[in-house]
Design a protein around this nucleic acid. Sequence first.
RNA 1: GCCGCCGUAGCUCAGUGGUAGAGCGCAUCCUUGGUAAGGCUGAGGUCGGCAGUUCAAUCCUGCCCGGCGGCACCA
Length: 861
Amino acid sequence: MARYNPKESEPKWRKAWETAQVFKPQPPESGLPKYYVLEMFPYPSGRLHMGHVRNYALGDVIARFKRARGFNVLHPMGWDAFGLPAENAAMERGVDPKAWTYDNIERMREGLKELGLSIDWTREFATCDAAYYGQQQSWFQDLWARGLVYRREGIVNWDPVDQTVLANEQVVDGRGWRSGAVVEKRKLNQWFMRITDYADDLIEGLKTLDRWPDKVRTMQENWIGRSKGLKFAFNWAGSAPAGFDQGLEVYTTRPDTLFGASFVGIAPDHPLAEQLASDPKVAAFIAECRKGGASEAEIETAEKIGYDTGLFVSHPFDPDWKLPVWIANFILMDYGTGAIFACPAHDQRDLDFARKYDLPVKPVVLPPGEDAATWNVETEAYTGPGTIFRSQFLDGLEIEPAKAMAIARIEAADQGKGATVYRLRDWGVARQRGWGCPIPVVHCDDCGIVAVPKDQLPVALPEDLDFSKPGNALLRHPTWRHTTCPSCGKAATRETDTLDTFVDSSWYFARFTNPTASTPIDKTAADYWLPVDQYVGGIEHAVLHLLYARYITRALCDEGMLSVKEPFAGLFTQGMVTHETYRRQSGEWVEPGEVEVITEGGIRRAVIAATGEQVVIGDSEKMSKSKRNVVAPEEIFQVYGVDAARLFVLSDSPPERDTGWSASGVEGAWRFVNRVWAEFDSQAEGPVPALDDADVAACALRTVTHKTIKALTDAVEGFRFNSGIARLYEFLNALKAAPAERASSGVQAARAEALSVFARLVAPFTPHLAEECWNRIGGEGMVVAAPWPVYDPALTEEAVRVLPVQVNGKRRGEISAPAGAEPAEVEKLVMADAEITRRLEGLTIRKVIVVKDRIVNIVAG
RNA sequence: GCCGCCGUAGCUCAGUGGUAGAGCGCAUCCUUGGUAAGGCUGAGGUCGGCAGUUCAAUCCUGCCCGGCGGCACCA
């Protein structure tokens, strides 16, 4: 009997899989039912971390499971390889970003391969391969030709640390999502992708994504922020300010409350406000508004302030009714038109403002059951349902019909139009960085901006970029930007901006379907494989990558390059891997490897192993360098093997939740691996006896076997990997309860069946161990190619049921009855039971409830 | 403030309208030629709280408490 040795077994089976090319899918022409499993591809940092282990292990379980279920599975891997870390490494250490990146890829690939993932490595590519980004430049040209890409001057988010423009999605709480620096507003010429063209469709599409977490769908819906309302212009009461002859255009979602209007407000950076700023008092007020911070907390607590411009507009339904125009700090320029009409009675912001500046508050919506004569608004705006009153032609209408009526009137008077407004802005895609996909255009003094013809693509990065200084290395390259105009042939300069790396990751899943195609996408391959059936990744991309990818997929679909609008039919967002933190009294963080945790009298304390110094055990937090609570996967693989590491991250908690890494946890997984092997190794070799249905012990084991197949299959289908694994633990305990030694021939046969099932069930989680076990019991071929076991429904039911017997809802005993026994029969058995009858002494039986095969309850008093 | 998720053994989590479970940890014992280990046995639970529905609630319903996440001057 030999102990299980992962160091020997694991590389052996990885080699065997590679030799047999078992993870290479059949081509589209096979017509087989397909299943595309994809995990978000990694940034090649060069180091594998536990988050990767969890992410890729999760996807691998699905891929291996679906393969065993007969699907033609595509499970590829690549690298999201452009981006700032390479530039920072270049600047700090003087290395070449390209060499650094490809070096990292080598190391990461090794680490991922060690994980034993069922990946078709022949499809691997990196986004920094010219072969990939050249194809990206190709479809970029197509989108530009169609007007989906454009260049305009605009106010953009400028990250002063990373020295680049950021998209709105990449600014969190007023700070750059990577650098954490406070973002500045700058007016720049910028490249945009017209994602707003698809705003409606992106919202509508969410409804079809029934295998996405609700949470992510809600987040995207919020981000797009669609609202329906009315855009109309107020006419000036008096002479119009210069340039505003057409009136003052506002946007509202509550046209039903127009008769409750109190004033009109404009944003401090509204063009009209800027014009009025020639008055020093107005300028001073605007400056005051800009002082406030950008963080949510600051916005939340900021007091509403306003400035009365002295201008008046006329009410659209009553020219004699004059409304004052205020500049107010709570109005946002980049939403709607940057101007509003205020109805304080039915909007809290307007009410706060009106009370402060003593402006009129006129309720026009009467809540159900209230009396029009007495109903009033004091400090709380009423935003609920009701009937419109004090509003002329709207009187008596409910809110929705009133909205429609008001819009119709405004439209009839040609003063405005019903309008849908979005929070979503167009996607700013240019980055002033050298390590990215060059935007393939040339600036010509005569011809303007000219696309580089497709036969001249890729516009490749030069090899000799200088990254020693901050800023855009492409811009300061001595020769690269100088070229000739593709159109007129005269001297011209290349665009030196590169594309946001989120563009790179917006179509890689499509490229995987044929990574060597001479066009961006091989339609035959894409039509067969897409959409991705199961996508796995972190929740942090809920509105970044996942929104961009949905948009680009739509754009490429309209371009005729793809046939699907939604790239990811199923999405699973996994939780983080956390670890306890340890600190010395001095506050210094201590690595888990240096710490020894001792439990005494039920109290856990931790000391530094080498010195015995007491350290404070802190919260479990996401593994991070700064808190030094990182556990390196490679070290775990060395000690316990890959399978134990996989098993632990899969078994510890539900996959969508955070999981806490612990040394004792992985040791438990490692012990399980050994117990599994010991069980297989104890099985007698040689011919297997026939199954014997008369053998009670054998039947009991078979019942467990078949119940486990059912439960585990359901668990994997429902992403409850941890509960599936819990069933395997129980299954193993049942096997141990029917040991091979001294087993009857029936039990021997049931054990053989159980072991064969076990090896296949455990294979998605601990694939190497499963192969070793499968091999030990003489399984045919490799377990990776073995079909998933099928349960026999007849065997998932026990023939004899143990029924608990309750008296007045409390358990007082149990009886055995044949499965399916009728109530009358069960009642007879109950009344024959001495323990039960003793409990019933002196009581009158009022009712006996028998739930077939489940329980008996006697109501007595 | 709004929305969502979660609360079961010391810890991490399964589970079910009907006998409360697993792993780790803990305790006792066995083994010491499976040994930088293995095994037996055991203790430990008001299933967050309160009400309701029910013959029966950890499970269903309502309210409350606690934790986590998302959104939030978007007119």
